[in-house]
Design a binder for these strands. Structure first.
Lengths: 342, 342
DNA sequence: CTGAAAGCGCTTACAG
DNA sequence: CTGAAAGCGCTTACAG
């Protein structure tokens, strides 16, 4: 049996209240007694039960992390940063891979509620704002990597729009004028923002993006590959592709290879996310980097702030994205039909 | 305030014992009463507090997962399978990325103890058997993906030795006779086993593996690249490389590219693990696949078995590895100096 | 500076 | 079939 606070108290000849006070460094305890009690705790390998202390109104020191899939490198990296910041502050993380499926989300939410986690970080679907609103009433929540504008909730995102601009900027600077886009599901705000920033910058440069050059994809390599292949097979194929995540960019790379196009010689590809995948392809991917480490840490910090207050004003933090140039982009090939086009 | 068992009892005009019984489906409760109580629970959004029930001697329904790094694709995939099997059975997973550092391991172990997790899955360093033995006395543990032969503990591993054989087999079948190996730290049993199986098969074919052709690497792309480069620059460079994990294989691929060698035309590379990285390189990697999904699930199942028993006999489960042929291996190039050599 | 006592939300014998 | 009561291991006013 593990030692309890009673064992320590008995051993030290004091009350459990006194032991509790030294554990929590509360009240005034004579230095002697404290030292003695500490020594006994040490000797008995005593560790206070978080379970019991949680029941008496304290925190559980546990956070829930809802993401689509921990096996996805992007979320794995975010999870690591959530974990690290949490660990620093004494919190554990329960991972919940939802596959963006409503029923799994509901199940996990119920579990987290039963376990009375102190806070929840939501990086998953959850487009039903109502659920989220209810949730946030009961447990502090922060949404990460996406936005639910219909609900007032803490949010930390990458500056997707700016990232989209950066991507366009980079391609334009390389002289590219015929562009294609592989977008992630446009139902997701962050995808729309990336595209929006990209378009904005294009318009400023008076470069058009024909509707047919914009492909909406699922979050899968094969889909990116298929859509890119179609784009490349069109009669005025793009000289550069903006892919809204690394998986799609990998697919695009594969499509280019099969089409016999050299990257970046004949086709430039710029990605978004900058997970480990971007470093492993050949050529490695030029990408707009999301600050994954900072995303996770910021989400945890927001939760911590929230713990202090009764009712807080919700914050939205947008972290800067950044261009990382690698080998998958280069200057546009000498134009067959130069200049702008439709 | 959330509803408690008292609220339900009051509302239903019964005792909390009765409510508890319907929650846990214990004892006999008249169908009418049960229905009514269930309805009230529903109406009040009641969910029993796991905290309270854990304090009264039941399980916490939480498992700890110690791994080196959740951001590493291999462990992320394992974690996903642990999570899924756990979720099916009603357990949540707390992730603990240790970076294989003693102090982090100790910290996390203390946290898991305070939280009274029902079981711990250990996929991290922990070579100090003593710690592990103590741990297992208090909390059921299973070691995953590695072995600690000095301690009797449940273990689930991939059949590394057989995997090593498979790799050798595949290369030999391609006519390769000059081989090189990039091994992960040979301090780890599983690395040694992979190498051992590989060697065994080579010996059966009377093909030698000179000491200089065996490079011990850390778990990093750059290291794989550097070591591979050295190997390729030697005077009798290998025609095929066995890399003990995907990261090293990626490094080898990069080294080959820089050396101007075509893969698999002039150099074959076979990897081990078969994470998503293996599918993303160019060419994609032929690899010995670890059954990551089954590793995680098996570990959870072993824990569940353990929960039943008082003192169990420790089991060791070795899951089959499997050859997955992709584009990074091919027949050996026509030999300059054929046959076997030293 | 120290302790007695109530309470957190459950479960579990034990009576009836 | 149902309930009263003790107990799990803590924390927290409140007294002294």
């Amino acid at each position: 049996m593990r030692a309890t606070i009673y064992d320590i108290a008995r051993e030290a000849g004091v009350s459990i209240a006194t032991v509790s006070k030294v554990i929590n460094q509360k009240g005034k305890i004579s230095a002697d007694k404290r030292r003695e009690i500490l020594a006994i705790m040490e000797r008995l390998h005593y560790q206070p039960s978080r379970i019991a202390s949680a029941l008496t109104g304290k925190h559980t020191y546990t956070l829930g992390l809802l993401i689509p899939d921990i096996a996805n490198p992007f979320f794995a990296e975010v999870a690591r940063s959530v974990e690290d910041r949490g660990h620093e502050l004494g919190y554990s993380i329960i991972i919940c891979s939802t596959d963006n499926r409503e029923e799994r989300i509901a199940q996990y939410l119920a579990v987290l509620r039963q376990k009375q986690v102190d806070g929840i970080i939501i990086g998953t679907g959850m487009e039903s704002g109502e659920l989220l609103r209810e949730l946030d009433m009961e447990t502090p929540a922060v949404v990460i990597g996406r936005e639910v504008p219909s609900v007032p909730v803490h949010t930390v995102v990458a500056d997707d729009r700016y990232g989209g601009r950066l991507a366009a900027e980079h391609l334009l600077a390389g002289g590219h004028r015929r562009l294609g886009v592989l977008a992630e599901g446009l139902g997701i705000m962050s995808s729309r923002e990336r595209l929006r920033g990209f378009r904005e910058r294009l318009e400023e440069a008076q470069v058009g993006l024909p509707a047919s050059a914009l492909r909406e994809c699922s979050y899968r390599i094969e889909d990116g590959k298929r859509q890119a292949a179609e784009l490349l097979a069109s009669e005025q194929p793009p000289t550069a592709l903006f892919c809204c995540n690394d998986l799609l960019a990998v697919g695009a790379l594969q499509a280019a290879r099969e089409a016999g196009l050299s990257v970046p010689g004949e086709l430039s590809i710029i990605s978004f996310d900058n997970t480990i995948l971007a470093t492993v392809t050949d050529p490695p991917l030029t990408a707009i980097a999301q600050p994954m480490a900072r995303l996770g840490a910021a989400a945890v910090d927001l939760l911590m702030e929230e713990f202090g207050q009764e009712r807080s004003v919700k914050r939205r933090i947008a972290l800067r994205t950044e261009l990382v140039v690698r080998g998958s982009t280069a200057a546009a090939p000498p134009a067959r039909s130069s200049g702008s086009e439709l």
